[in-house]
Design a protein around this nucleic acid. Structure first.
Lengths: 147, 147
DNA sequence: GCTGAAACACCTCACTT
DNA sequence: AAGTGAGGTGTTTCAGC
């Protein structure tokens, strides 16, 4: 789908606050409420907007420990998506180029829970070793830029 | 704030689709619409719910290249938040324990743009070297677990 | 593809249990 | 703290340009 500059501005406004009335969105980009609504409808229909969701504070839910873990493997890891997805503390999993095979983002409640997650990662078929990078302070985590 | 099991179920439902009427949310957890609304209002007021937002498809917006970059530094990096935040392609920045100082998540449109971002990272005061991990395939990126 | 108005559904709030 | 019902508001739809 063709996404023009007005669409991108609408996406930015919706990222900040998806509860705004279409009249306000339209005014911000120089459109009527109806026209703004039509733009957003198409962005949703085409998949540019995947869903409307809430952003939660992980620390408030008892997940204040963040870490990234590099997984080394002695087998092809391309079919290990389900095994990684089954580990609740794993927030992201990526196949990577370079020394290791897979990079996962882990958010745990405590260092003990982080250790349990590392054990679970070791038990995934093919994984031979892990390197853990513990986050001391997060400067920011923000959504993808739309401009 | 005390977050009980019903709150967590509401958070999960809202993560999936924040446009659902409170009547539907309430029914799913065994509450009336008004009671469900009151729960959600408190979750927002206390900051457990940071905001209502949209989830966009980065690839549809021309940001199909994902990489993680480890930054080594010869100075304290704790005051470099603003410098990193100013680089639009940097989606996350974390101070880490271990060999490197800072870990950043970069989403670029092309490998050329990734290279430009690496140059910008090198120009941040204190950064002495970078190690880049390029993502070949993302298994998944999902929001923090609420349960 | 954009504009504008009318029907509809939802949210909100005060009151009750 | 949760349920109920009335009132106000935003959204949605549709015809017209």
């Amino acid at each position: 789908m063709a996404v023009d500059d007005v669409d991108r501005r609408l996406l930015g406004l919706l990222q900040e606050d998806a509860t705004q009335p279409y009249a306000v969105l339209g005014e911000a980009v120089g459109l009527s409420a109806g026209a703004a609504h039509e733009r957003v409808r198409k962005l949703k229909a085409s998949g540019v907007i995947r869903r409307t969701t809430i952003e939660v504070d992980p620390a408030a839910l008892g997940r204040g420990v963040l870490a990234y873990v590099l997984l080394d493997a002695d087998a092809w890891m391309g079919d290990k998506r389900a095994a990684l997805e089954a580990i609740g503390a794993v927030e992201e999993a990526h196949v990577i180029a370079g020394p290791a095979s897979v990079l996962v983002k882990v958010r745990a409640g405590t260092t003990e829970e982080l250790q349990q997650t590392l054990r679970a990662l070791h038990q995934v078929d093919g994984v031979t070793s892990t390197q853990t990078v513990v986050v001391l302070e997060s400067f920011f985590e923000r959504p993808p830029a739309v401009v």
